[in-house]
């Protein structure tokens, strides 16, 4: 039981993510989370603005159920399976984050400097979260997939487009963390 309540090691989590993909494929579907963003746009009436969102969402309903489940899974994971949810990242990362002003590094699951009620009193934090989300949503749909669709599903099928996308994911992430973080924080 102890092992269940501690963070799950990578060699358990990675295979379980592969298992999630395998089950979805064997259910006749595919493993890709970001297309839900478009489905949610369609549901919210985005079809009034462009035909792109005027689609029949019934064939995509299964994927909405998956993310509804993921919300529930997050609730269960946080409330029943994690008596201690501090993320023990490496000391090097903690030092660098402390220098950037992230005092919660190593002591929380998410940085309290961005993801707490107090943090939201600063307009800059709203801007950061909104911008981060916007780039994720826009980029994922432009690239036709995200971590699940390209980095796991696409690369598993040895797709060159997915490799290009994943190289892009890393190029963008490295620029953000190494070049832009010192300017933003």
């Amino acid at each position: 039981m102890e092992a269940l309540y501690s963070p799950w090691p990578w060699y358990v989590s990675g295979p379980l993510i592969a298992l999630t993909m395998a089950v979805l494929v064997l259910m006749g579907k595919r493993f890709g989370m970001s297309s839900n963003l478009e489905t949610l746009c369609s549901l919210s009436g985005a079809g009034k603005f462009t035909d792109y969102f005027r689609v029949d969402i019934r064939p995509r309903r299964w994927n909405l159920l998956v993310i509804m489940g993921a919300v529930l899974g997050g609730f269960i994971g946080a409330n029943f399976l994690s008596p201690d949810d501090q993320v023990a990242i490496s000391d090097h990362s903690i030092e660098k984050l402390n220098l950037l002003g992230f005092k919660s590094a190593g002591e929380a699951y998410l940085p309290l400097e961005l993801f707490s009620a107090e943090a939201l009193s600063a307009p800059l934090v709203w801007g950061i979260l909104l911008m981060g989300g916007f780039l994720v949503g826009f980029g994922a749909r432009y690239a036709g997939g995200c971590t699940s669709g390209h980095a796991i599903s696409g690369l598993s099928d040895l797709q060159l487009p997915s490799l290009i996308a994943v190289i892009g994911f890393f190029a963008g992430g490295l620029v953000m963390v190494h070049v832009l973080f010192p300017l933003i924080f």
Partner: peptide, 22 residues
């Protein structure tokens, strides 16, 4: 183009928000 540019924009957001669409 779509994979390189879209992927890079996604990466910028992934690192900033610290979360991808799952």
């Amino acid at each position: 183009v779509r994979y390189a540019v879209g992927g890079t924009l996604f990466g910028l957001g992934w690192a900033l928000a610290g979360a991808c669409p799952g």
